[in-house]
Amino acid sequence: MQDRKQKLRNMSLSALFLAASVIISIVEGISGVNAFIPLPGVRLGFCNVAITACLYLVSVPHAFAVALIRPLFLFVFSGNPVSLAMSFCGGLVSFMSLVVTKKLYGRVLSFAGISCISAVFHSIGQIAAAMMIMNDIALITYLPVFAAASSIAGSVSGAVMNAVLPRIAVVIKKGGAI
């Protein structure tokens, strides 16, 4: 009975984080925050906060599901197959880096550094996807610029994680209504 309750709890928590990540992406797109970034195509990526929260507070498979389903939901709203492929690849690669760097948390890096690394891997994945779509290797010249810009954006959203995640953890540990 306890086990079943735990399963149900994990499922609803990860659904909650999925909804949060989709909404954060949409609001970020509408609000025009990205217009302040001088490079075209670079986003802040606050939706990573929800995925990282799911990874650290629920479990790795649940967070993996969230990372995979989020681009599909965004595709429903944007209807752009190119951006679907790019955010899918970016999400996959950055999720892998999040899992690998999970061991570093609390010992070497805080969330800011972890999110910085995952942001760099996200841009690597996106550019790899764009290279596959375009069938052109010239895109790699953009990688340094995008990686540098996204590492800053990743650190910003990592600072948000540092502030938010411990508080969410307290609420979840307490149990009961969230």
């Binding site: 070497v108 890096l109 800011a112 550094g113 910085c116 760099v120 990686a147 590492s151 800053i152 650190s155």
Partner: peptide
């Protein structure tokens, strides 16, 4: 550490 990492990447 985070700040050093970010600066190194840039």
């Amino acid at each position: 550490n985070d700040i050093i990492l970010n600066i190194l990447i840039i």
